[in-house]
Design a protein around this nucleic acid. Sequence first.
DNA 1: TTAATTAAGGACAACGATGTCCGAGTGTTT
DNA 2: AAACACTCGGACATCGTTGTCCTTAATTAA
Lengths: 155, 155
Amino acid sequence: MLTQTSEYALRAMCALAARPGETVPAAELATQADVPQPYLAKIMQQLAATHFVSGRRGIGGGYSLAVDPRKVTALELVMAVGPIRKPRTSTELDELGDGFKALHERLDRAASGVLEVLQESTIAELAQDIGAIRREEPVLSVTPGKNGASRSAAG
Amino acid sequence: MLTQTSEYALRAMCALAARPGETVPAAELATQADVPQPYLAKIMQQLAATHFVSGRRGIGGGYSLAVDPRKVTALELVMAVGPIRKPRTSTELDELGDGFKALHERLDRAASGVLEVLQESTIAELAQDIGAIRREEPVLSVTPGKNGASRSAAG
DNA sequence: TTAATTAAGGACAACGATGTCCGAGTGTTT
DNA sequence: AAACACTCGGACATCGTTGTCCTTAATTAA
């Protein structure tokens, strides 16, 4: 029903929604969203192809939001990265015969519950608690010395 | 979340629960539950290994219920054929940082909804409507004539 | 222009879910 | 007992998802 990719996409999108206007590299998003970096890159590609984010290459590049997070639901995002298993139509139920009505009713009700939760949740709502992660240093420059490593994290 | 195998297992188990005491071949269950025959065989194996059903080989063999359908929940059955994705514990939520609380709360709520539906449904309840399928001829013996098909089920 | 940085895109590997097949075991018949 | 028919049980193949890697393209700084 809900795949791993779905959750990765939601986390990354929320992390991005917490930085409105900013262009964030995929590597940084992967760190904040706790997603394998190469795989998140793949997911971000899909989100860029479906115009949820826009990617910019080169120095200072990265991904930035291309939509209003208050108007995009979690369901739309999940559908963008992969087809979601929708509950059966009543027509399909008839095909199987009437014997499994009780079973299919319950299964479909469970599936509908998941869809509703996703439908009712906007990206902005899901990302509302984020911002706490901004307290930490985003990414540490690993270039050795030169101007002196100022990476004492415990501030 | 809920895999195809889960649904197959539930349908087959319901079909079996509608024939208490009987030993039904996997092929017949596959027909009634509308599941690919060779694949259902594999699922029935798992259900036999987990002692939900007991298999008997040879002529007149098949599968029979090994549990009380009123005391087995759909959740137990689903877990028997494959691990189900359970909601995160609050401890795991802390590991990821506090930023994604709202997101994970909703996702877990959706997952919990599915679990609850499965938990609240016993096999007996799900199979209550079955029996209608017994009106139809179960499987037609395709062996031509000889001693004549004496297996007219409609008594 | 050259070098550095970053996304875009495709090829490849690993894994589980799904689907198919053949051998082992059981009962019937001779 | 031996041969045979029937059915389960485990091994094999296929497919999509998940995850990694490498090459290419675009953008910026020097």
